[in-house]
């Protein structure tokens, strides 16, 4: 113990991407003379993850999330910087390391299409050299936790997207990895299935105290699972810390939800009106003025209900990106 699950320092990955203008002429020219552009997919990021921690990795498309996950799981060699996972250098792809981690990508399957998942599970058992009794125990536990039932005996091609994700997760966890990298595990799933997967990940984390690094486009995933988030944009870390403090420390305003007795009153003098639904009005007010505005509202109107809240986390993150990117 005491060893960090993940240690990343000044990590950088640069891709060389061929570049050409549109059109046939340019295509022909690029056959002989290629121009390359350097893309800094990951540009000097540093962070640590403790054993048993669940961390959300957020950022827009192309921010460098997947590239980072791939470097952590040893698929990509970093251009520069240091990566240690469970004390190992992933890019060396030592078997001892690969046996203790798992990578799940929501948009790609690892299970073979034509055969039932149960057969793929057995192949994984052999590949990860899991002893039979342990394999059976883990498999039965996963079947129960994910409510797989007879899904494992059907050919994978006959499963729905959500069912497939569940068996994919089971396949990825049969060897009980100590570190789990999840890239958009709930992509394209309906709300119920998203919840189910979320509950499962939380349960797995608690039962086996595995470290989890999760990327997702769904804020709900992150809010439900992660205390800590790392927000990344254009290969750089914008924020690393507690999800709750992100909202309180970064948002320069609060949202006031006011329900008035008589409808129709114009509240634009108190703050920015974000939405109006009958008698219920949502106001955005600078944080420092919140006590004053609240007092004035209560004095001037018959207020039936009033709540003061931090803005939704999506809005805060949007603010963060807006601040990081200079206006075009």
């Amino acid at each position: 113990m005491g060893e960090l699950a993940v240690h990343v320092a000044h990590l950088r990955r640069i891709f060389k991407v061929p570049e050409r203008e549109a059109g046939l002429r340019e295509s022909v020219r690029s056959l002989f003379h290629r121009r390359y552009r350097e893309v800094r997919a990951v540009d000097g990021i540093s962070f640590d993850i403790e054993p048993g921690e669940v961390v959300g990795f957020l950022g827009p498309n192309g921010a460098g999330k997947t590239t980072t996950l791939k470097m952590l799981s040893g698929l990509l060699h970093p251009t520069d910087g240091e990566v240690r996972v469970l004390g190992e250098t992933p890019a060396r792809r030592r078997r001892e390391y690969l046996r203790r981690m798992s990578l799940v990508m929501g948009n790609r399957n690892q299970l073979q299409w034509d055969i039932p998942a149960a057969d793929s599970f057995e192949l994984n058992r052999a590949i990860y050299q899991v002893p039979w009794p342990e394999f059976r125990r883990t498999r039965d536990e996963l079947v129960e936790l994910l409510d797989l039932g007879d899904l494992v005996t059907k050919p994978v091609r006959n499963l729905s997207l959500g069912e497939r994700m569940k068996v994919e997760l089971a396949a990825a966890l049969l060897h009980r990895p100590a570190v789990l990298f999840l890239d958009e595990p709930t992509l394209g799933l309906d709300i119920t299935m998203q919840k189910r997967i979320r509950t499962f990940i939380a349960e797995y984390n608690v039962r086996h105290s595995a470290s989890v690094l999760l990327t997702s486009h769904y804020m709900a995933d992150v809010e439900a699972l992660c205390q800590r988030v790392i927000i990344i944009d254009r290969g750089r870390i914008l924020f690393d810390g507690d999800l709750a403090t992100l909202a309180t420390s970064l948002a320069a305003y609060k949202e006031l939800d006011v329900t008035l007795a008589g409808s129709g009153a114009d509240l634009s003098g108190y703050g920015e009106v974000r939405s109006r639904d009958g008698d219920r009005v949502t106001l955005r007010v600078p944080k420092a003025q919140t006590p004053l505005v609240t007092a004035r509202l209560l004095a001037d109107h018959t207020v039936l209900d009033l709540t003061v809240e931090d803005p939704p986390i999506e809005d805060v993150i949007e603010l963060l990106f807006a601040a990081a990117r200079p206006p075009a």
């Binding site: 799981s73 390391y97 690969l98 046996r99 990578l103 690892q110 990860y128």
Partner: peptide, 18 residues
Amino acid sequence: ADGTLDYVLAKPVDAQLL
């Protein structure tokens, strides 16, 4: 071409063999 080789490389077994 489609990137699923990632899963082969993430397995603790010689990738060329697999």
